[in-house]
Amino acid sequence: MTSCHIAEEHIQKVAIFGGTHGNELTGVFLVKHWLENGAEIQRTGLEVKPFITNPRAVKKCTRYIDCDLNRIFDLENLGKKMSEDLPYEVRRAQEINHLFGPKDSEDSYDIIFDLHNTTSNMGCTLILEDSRNNFLIQMFHYIKTSLAPLPCYVYLIEHPSLKYATTRSIAKYPVGIEVGPQPQGVLRADILDQMRKMIKHALDFIHHFNEGKEFPPCAIEVYKIIEKVDYPRDENGEIAAIIHPNLQDQDWKPLHPGDPMFLTLDGKTIPLGGDCTVYPVFVNEAAYYEKKEAFAKTTKLTLNAKSIRCCLH
């Protein structure tokens, strides 16, 4: 018999989150649709729960009410004593943790798909938090293969000092899905179709896995975050240069030392320094102006996964 890495157990509980950011409308629209008619997301033997994560922000069509829901799922915020004085999103995070967690427990949901849009030209993107997770690498390989020839990129946010504390991190297997470009507060049919297909293929993978299909060893190309880059700023902290036209919409493309990065209003080009080629992502993302992030630098690498098969009882 072929030796293989056996994944822990079959997958039982899956959640699909929309509206973690209330103005990213593809996930909101799909989740609302699936709450009314969820036939397309159901798979035999699998509990799939669509869920609106930040209903107040969705109602106002804004990213958040008090603070970013997708950055506060750490033990400090989840452990705060519940009171009306807490920011709305912290209270909501505790409610979500109660419903789908608790985080880092045996009772937490197996998989959470968190649906997002970006204003950046990132196409279909899967966000991975753990480079050693054979199950998710296999799932992402399946999704990428199923979507081809449509490109699907994998963004690895594993980093020693950049801690995200994402909404989906309460699950055993957290999956971020990011599709763009799409303006905030807008629905685009092409973007919706791409996100819908990503979810379909992900659920198909889980179904095949649960039925005992063995997935042979595989490898995927990923883009691992190195650092986030702020806009150049003046002495008052105001933005002093904008994304250069040569960099705009060039997510995932190589940016070499000396290539144009920013452009000042008086026409001066600010190039990339250093001696390493990087791959920019979230270029000129609207939501990241407040976070002082013009783009993120990534490096390209390959992740390998062992063969996996479900432990059938």
Rank of each mutant, 00 (worst) to 15 (best):
H116E: 02
S83Q: 13
E285C: 13
D104G: 15
Y173A: 07
T299C: 12
Y173R: 08
K253N: 08
Y173K: 08
D204N: 07
T119Y: 05
K172A: 07
H201A: 12
H33L: 06
H5Y: 10
S146L: 09
P260E: 05
R71T: 14
Q12I: 00
V278G: 03
S105P: 10
Y173L: 13
G101N: 08
K213M: 15
A7Q: 14
G180W: 04
P174R: 15
I308Y: 01
G38E: 12
M139C: 00
A57K: 02
A219Q: 14
A240P: 03
N23S: 09
A57M: 07
A171T: 07
Y288L: 15
E285Q: 08
Y279V: 00
H98W: 11
S108V: 12
A286V: 10
S169M: 07
N210E: 00
N117M: 02
M195I: 02
T125C: 14
K49E: 09
R132M: 10
A219M: 10
I11F: 06
I96Q: 06
I270T: 04
I72L: 14
A294N: 03
V278S: 01
V283Q: 05
D68G: 07
D193H: 10
T298V: 01
G176V: 13
C311T: 14
A15C: 03
D266T: 09
I206M: 01
A165M: 10
A165L: 09
D275M: 07
E211K: 12
T62S: 13
E290M: 09
Q42V: 08
H313G: 15
F100E: 05
L247A: 03
H33R: 12
P271E: 10
L156F: 08
P257F: 02
A148E: 13
N23K: 05
E214C: 09
I170A: 08
E129G: 08
I41G: 05
P151I: 01
G101Q: 06
D130G: 02
L312H: 15
E178F: 15
K306L: 09
L272T: 07
T145N: 13
R43H: 01
K32N: 15
F262I: 04
K228I: 10
I127S: 01
P160F: 07
K13T: 06
L86F: 12
S120H: 02
K32W: 00
P260F: 00
C4Q: 15
L35G: 08
P87T: 09
I112V: 14
E221T: 07
K81L: 14
G258P: 06
E129Q: 11
P181R: 02
Y153E: 09
L128W: 03
D275E: 11
V154W: 05
F51C: 10
P151E: 11
L99E: 12
T62H: 12
D190T: 08
S131E: 11
L203V: 01
R168L: 07
N23H: 07
T26N: 04
F140Q: 04
A202D: 06
Q250A: 12
K80I: 13
R43V: 00
I137N: 06
R196P: 06
H256N: 14
P183K: 04
R71H: 13
L136V: 07
R168W: 07
L128D: 06
G18H: 03
T277N: 03
D193G: 10
H5S: 14
P87I: 08
L69Y: 06
D190Y: 03
L25W: 07
I52F: 03
K197T: 12
N236I: 07
D114Y: 07
L115H: 03
V28K: 09
T166Q: 11
L126D: 03
A202K: 02
P257H: 01
V229R: 03
I143F: 05
P245E: 01
Y88H: 10
V31E: 04
F51N: 03
D204S: 04
N210P: 05
E178Y: 15
E76Y: 10
H201I: 05
G123C: 01
Y289M: 15
L147F: 05
L126T: 04
D275H: 09
C276R: 14
K197H: 10
G180Y: 05
G123K: 07
L255S: 00
P217N: 06
L35W: 06
L255G: 03
L162Q: 15
K172V: 00
T20I: 04
T264A: 08
E290H: 10
I127K: 09
K81W: 12
I226H: 08
N77Y: 11
S3R: 13
L156N: 06
V175L: 05
D110I: 05
S169V: 03
S169L: 00
C218P: 03
D190N: 09
K60E: 13
F29Q: 15
K163W: 08
L247V: 08
A287C: 13
I65H: 07
I96W: 05
H256W: 03
G79W: 13
H256I: 07
C311D: 13
D130W: 00
G45M: 01
R233N: 04
P50G: 00
L272R: 05
A171D: 04
S120A: 14
A294H: 00
G212V: 01
G45E: 04
L147A: 04
L192Y: 08
E76W: 10
H207G: 11
G19H: 00
P50I: 00
I177H: 05
P102Q: 10
L69R: 06
F29E: 15
V31N: 02
G18P: 03
L86Y: 11
E293W: 10
T299L: 14
Y88N: 07
F73P: 11
V28I: 13
K200C: 11
R168Q: 10
S120T: 07
S120F: 05
D249W: 00
H208G: 09
S307K: 11
P160W: 08
Q138N: 02
Q194E: 06
H207N: 11
I177P: 03
I206S: 01
Q248F: 04
A202I: 01
E95Y: 10
L265C: 10
K60P: 06
D74K: 11
K300R: 11
W252C: 08
V48I: 11
A93G: 12
E89N: 03
F51A: 06
T20A: 02
I96A: 06
E24R: 01
H5K: 13
P245S: 00
S161M: 10
S161F: 10
E9K: 15
D110K: 02
E285K: 03
Y288S: 15
E89R: 02
L312A: 15
I270Q: 03
K268G: 08
M122N: 08
I199E: 03
K300H: 01
E235W: 05
T166R: 11
G123D: 03
D130I: 03
V175E: 02
R91F: 12
A39R: 12
M261Y: 04
E47N: 10
S3A: 13
H207Y: 12
